[in-house]
Amino acid sequence: MINKVTVEMMPIVLATGDPARVDEPIPAKFKEGDKVIVLEVNAPTHNRLPSYIKGKVGTVTFDHGVFVFPDTSAHRKGPKPQHVYTVTFTAQEVWGEAGHPSDRLYADIWDDYMRHA
């Protein structure tokens, strides 16, 4: 269903956007402080998981609540809502000796991309 954006609607579209948040009481699989391993997701379909953190161990740092899942949403197969968390990795966990010992990487990761370490 296409609803043409008129001049009157444009400011509303711009001010609203696409929150991608889902207001459903979906339980979280992880909690802040949990150690997690990022899964080897290698499907040819859409996902939002950068290769450089696959298989790496990180710590759940913040639970942002429930969001649409890109893997299904991108293919018009529904929202499959689930939690998104900021997960922290040490630079050396991700890059080995190329990582600076003081540094950290933060990525936002959906439930379906992780398991408990």
Partner: peptide
């Protein structure tokens, strides 16, 4: 892009897929 998004042609995920 914003007009088509606002009209419901795609969401953020459907937008990214063809770029990839």
């Amino acid at each position: 892009m914003i007009a088509c998004f606002g009209a419901g042609v795609f969401n953020v995920d459907q937008f990214r897929r063809p770029i990839e």
